[in-house]
């Protein structure tokens, strides 16, 4: 195996960094018309238009709040279910696992009407809690799968050890399991936030316009030929999960045995 680093860097630049830079460039200039004969025409118009949208901030805060709530619920449900699935064996376990995965196999839109009806009866339609709960449908199966795998990799022995040493449930969770689950927590954070942030139809129907998330403001603008405006919107859209991801990263540092910058290392 030779050193693959240059290849990785080249692929990374061509496929990830260059498109992002193009997006940034486009958002800061007038739409490019190659026949027009001008070079890049620097303009802040697209960001001005973005900021001028009266619902931009409201929608951004809603999206962040909902994203975090969905993440917390996902972590709780995912960790508990994942642990249960990997530590107990019972009759019909494959069926239970299949059932837990089923929400991603059935399109959410197909059951949206039934869920909406149910939410109206529960009084959850047109509320934020309703939107948070509906966002669990496309996210929870992934979280369960990810945590299940992590616990599987840790193995039963590592779970028995703290138990033998007399640790209670929470001590075990915070000092043994969560630090080892850090990579899984990262994956779940990213997946959950990105999925929750991009739900349009189910948010519109369950939130009923009372809960205004970013896609509700952005998606109608996709039918727009103005590439600069689209780029500005896309960057804003990408910015939100990145900020949230960094926040979660900071929270993860608070876990025991983290390599925190302010502690001495060997």
């Amino acid at each position: 195996m030779k050193n693959n680093k240059p290849v990785f860097t080249a692929v990374g630049i061509v496929f990830f960094i260059a498109p992002l830079l193009l997006l940034l460039l486009q958002s800061l200039s007038a739409p490019w018309r190659f026949q027009s004969g001008y070079g890049v025409d620097w303009k802040l118009e697209s960001f001005r238009q973005l900021i001028r949208d009266p619902y931009l901030w409201e929608a951004t805060w809603w999206s962040i709040l909902i994203g975090f709530l969905v993440l917390v619920l996902n972590a709780v449900v995912g960790i508990l279910t994942g642990k249960a699935l990997s530590s107990y064996s019972f009759k019909g376990k494959p069926w239970v696992e299949a059932l837990l995965l089923s929400p991603i196999l059935i399109p959410v839109l197909a059951i949206a009407m039934g869920l909406h009806l149910f939410m109206i009866r529960l009084g959850l339609a047109d509320t934020m809690m309703g939107v948070v709960i509906i966002h669990l449908v496309p996210t929870i199966p992934y979280s369960i799968k990810i945590f299940h795998n992590s616990y599987q990799q840790m193995g039963k022995a590592l779970m028995e050890q703290p138990h033998i040493l007399g640790a209670g449930f929470f001590t075990q969770l915070f000092t043994v399991e969560l630090p080892l689950l850090r990579p899984a927590l990262r994956s779940v954070t990213f997946l959950t936030i990105v999925i929750s942030l991009s739900q349009y139809a189910i948010t519109a129907i369950i939130g009923g316009g009372q809960v205004l998330t970013l896609p509700m403001v952005f998606f109608p603008f996709l039918e727009n030929a103005n590439a600069s405006l689209m780029s500005a919107f896309s960057l804003w859209f990408a910015f939100v999960p990145v900020v949230m991801y960094i926040l979660v990263e900071v929270i993860l540092l608070l876990l025991p045995y983290s390599r925190v910058p302010w502690r001495n290392h060997r």
Partner: peptide, 26 residues
Amino acid sequence: RVPMDTPEILQKLQTEKQAGKQDGTI
């Protein structure tokens, strides 16, 4: 003003009709 596509608005109304919800938001 609430931004929402018309088919979604109609789907919302349709379900509310079915649920007998008389105090709509629209």
